[in-house]
Design a protein around this nucleic acid. Structure first.
Length: 424
RNA sequence: GUGGAUGUGGUGAAGCGGUUAACACACCGGAUUGUGGCUCCGGCAUUCGAGGGUUCAAUCCCCUUCAUCCACCCCA
């Protein structure tokens, strides 16, 4: 067997890659409109960053990291997510010295050692945003609104934006107490995982998918029920701002995000039809993280969007534009001299912005035309001995099947004119 | 990590124990040595993911292994 790509990775080939360009282009322009600037951090980091930043109790850290030792025995890890790196850069590059808040975005590959399935890869791509240094509810709403706008611009339908507040450490402690009290009498009815969660992190029982556990936890106190005054007020204001921005959202008291660092606002965007992995975006507030990794106390909020999943949804909903590719005009040169003259013509076409090409394999007239047709070219510019003699080029329209002779001085303008007409 | 499905040419696929492995598309060549798309003709898998076993005989049965897909867990 020949060498194949590592499990859970993919080759993005020339045709389909235009979808990525489309997606990235919309992301970048919406970010520009919202005043977010791009940051690029390394694709690998000290392992400790993720252990501390993502959380020792998470699946990501416990079983999904690509960790290796380098030649000096440093433990490094391919980044499984973007937030920890951005916070590290915020601290290390002293971005807090700038006017706050700092509004950043990133796009790039992430790596998790998981078993691949539909919508899940070992190397996948995320777009994410982080706002550091602001704790006001408007910020939360702005970030969610940015996500909303990107999806709207892309033409995605049937989205569900779920919003919740998981509170601050104080209300979480209170919630935990109430939740345990509520569940205690029926502890025996929970699944094995949830029985463990009862001790470690009862919050997670709320989003267990096991029907039995859902039955038991029905009516349980939610995080939103036990918010302290400040958190409650924060959450209410977030909702008011979301409504003001025209974001259609749903309160989801069972929404609990997986990573350890979340505080207060948590949100997720789902699309049903892409398979079991229906979350295309998840995020929330993480006011303690920057301090956790050695920076100044800094409120922060962000999200990550899974680009493969967004593309899958775009594809299923057929809202991707047709890709532009292939030459508009193809030079069909017959003979050495024609090739030289033609190459000069090609060069001027390209400088004029007309995508154009020629044959490189010494094919005959017929084969060259066939090739031009296959590449989807609109025009063939035929140049042979006859045409050299009379200083003309045969300009053949491959879709109409009509052709005319055009004198050399007029060719560039004619072809360019047709190209611009077609582009309209 | 656990479970299920699948692996036949570039692609989609038939065959399911027995002499030459259907068919379609794609591709290459020709009909038409200066005109593509349509049509017609011809070519295109010593081989059925890999390794082992059963058998007189295996793409078809058994074992092992690898890969892909899907689901669980969890997440984007």
């Amino acid at each position: 067997m020949t060498i194949q790509r590592p499990k859970g990775t993919q080759d993005l080939l020339p045709g389909p890659i235009s979808k990525w360009h489309h997606l990235e282009q919309i992301i970048r322009s919406v970010c520009r409109e919202y005043g977010y600037e791009e940051i690029r951090t390394p694709i690998f980091e000290a392992t400790e960053l993720f252990q501390r930043g993502v959380g020792e109790t998470t699946d990501i850290v416990n079983k999904e990291m690509y960790t290796f030792l380098d030649k000096a025995d440093r433990s490094l890890t391919l980044r499984p997510e973007g937030t920890a790196s951005v916070c590290r850069a915020y601290v290390e590059d002293k971005l807090y010295a700038q006017a706050l808040p700092v509004k950043l975005y990133y796009i790039g590959p992430m790596f998790r050692y998981e078993k691949p399935q539909s919508g899940r890869y070992r190397q996948f791509h995320q777009f994410g945003v982080e706002v550091l240094g602001a704790d006001k509810p408007v910020v939360d709403a702005e970030v969610i609104s940015l996500v909303w706008d990107i999806y709207r611009r892309l033409g995605l339908k049937d989205l569900e934006v779920h919003v919740n507040s998981v509170g601050c450490p104080t209300c979480r402690a209170e919630h935990r107490r109430q939740l345990r009290d509520f569940l205690a009498p029926r502890l025996g009815e929970l699944c094995r995982d949830c029985q463990e969660r009862y001790d470690r992190n009862p919050l997670r029982i709320l989003d267990c998918k096991n029907p039995g556990c859902q039955e038991v936890s029905r009516g349980a106190p939610t995080t939103a029920d036990t918010l302290c005054g400040d958190c409650r007020e924060h959450f209410e204001e977030v909702q008011e701002f979301l409504t003001a921005a025209g974001v259609i959202y749903r309160l989801d008291p069972r929404l609990v995000r997986g990573l350890d660092y979340y505080r207060r606002t948590a949100f997720e965007v789902m699309v049903e039809e892409i398979g079991a992995q229906s979350a295309i975006c998840g995020g929330g507030r993480y006011d303690g993280l920057v301090e956790e990794i050695g920076g100044p106390p800094t409120p922060a909020i962000g999200f990550a969007m899974g680009l493969e999943r967004v593309l899958a949804a775009l594809e299923l909903q057929r809202v991707l534009p047709e890709s532009e590719h292939g030459p508009f005009a193809v030079l069909v040169a017959l003979g050495k001299e024609a090739e030289k003259q033609g190459f000069a013509l090609l060069s001027s076409l390209r400088q004029a912005g007309v995508p154009s090409g020629m044959d490189f394999l010494g094919r005959g007239l017929k084969a060259q035309l066939k090739q031009a047709d296959r590449q989807g070219a609109r025009l063939a510019l035929i140049l042979g001995d006859e045409e050299l003699k009379w200083k003309v080029v045969i300009l053949r329209d491959l879709t109409l099947g009509e052709q005319t002779e055009v004198p050399w001085p007029d060719i560039l303008a004619t072809v360019k004119g047709k190209y611009e007409e077609e582009k309209k």
